[in-house]
Write a protein that binds this DNA or RNA. Structure first.
Lengths: 141, 141
DNA sequence: TATATACCCGAGTAAAATAGTCAAGATTAA
DNA sequence: TTAATCTTGACTATTTTACTCGGGTATATA
């Protein structure tokens, strides 16, 4: 099981953004430098974040990104799903003979993955972006 | 985030084993056929399960595998860790400038991954192999 | 003892996913 | 106008995953 860099970077970048966007749009270049993430990669990530209404952009000189809503309204689950970080890529449905179609013939572990998905989603639904910022030992550096 | 096939297969195979090993060792070929998993792949998986004392083997004709302990003593977390299914492959420690060494300079999301790891481990520590067998709609098929 | 059954183990490989790069363009503040 | 900045699609290298293969060793049983 793993979380990809994309999801991690998205959270890091947004936390950075939350700390710096009180004074206006934050350009990706700044985030790139502060968080040590490739600018090109950040661009990809923010495109997705924008499409999912997590950030807003301003073009041109002096432009950059700002959060679309308050950090304490932004669930981490929204962030992960925006960048295609799926909680559940387990799929029991093998097309072959013994496939699990989720109905009549559930495979033996089917319910397990359902429960796990629920468990993890609960975690990420409770966590807000604001939980990550302005804490002593998790401060921006 | 995802769980790999290896972890899923391990759980499926062991659940199958739990259902059939009352009458002696179960050969992998039977599990392979019943669960629709490649025999060669199962061999790899069971090698690891054996090294971690989750199953015992009997060689030769009439041989096969049996569970090392009772299904209600076997945590799913043990199974996953035996087949290298890591709950946390997030690592904040990028060697570069902005690395997170887990001590003085924790990265902004460090605590988050710690909490998540704990959350998921809790889930898998509570779940036992016996929770998967002998239930109506998750029955062996 | 011969034979078939089954585990043991290391190595190799193809496909997919991930992480990251790049180029060319559009928009806007100063 | 110019520099800063987002926008977009395509491309590539690396890593991981899933699976295969070949040649063993051990053991029951006929």
């Amino acid at each position: 099981m793993k979380l990809t860099s994309k999801g991690r970077y998205a959270v890091m970048a947004l936390a950075d953004l939350a700390n710096f966007n009180k004074t206006g749009p934050v350009p990706l270049r700044d985030i790139s430098i502060r968080q040590g993430i490739s600018l090109f990669y950040l661009e990809q990530i923010f495109l997705k974040l924008k499409k999912h209404n997590i950030v807003q952009s301003t073009r041109g000189s002096g432009g950059g990104y700002v959060l679309f809503k308050n950090a304490d309204d932004l669930k981490l689950s929204e962030i992960f799903s925006a960048v295609d970080e799926k909680v559940k890529t387990i799929n029991c449905k093998r097309e072959s003979k013994k496939g699990c179609n989720g109905k009549a013939s559930k495979c033996i572990t089917h319910n397990l993955w359902d429960e796990l998905e629920l468990h993890i989603n609960t975690f990420f639904n409770q966590k807000k972006l604001s939980d990550l910022v302005s804490k002593k030992d998790t401060q921006i550096r």
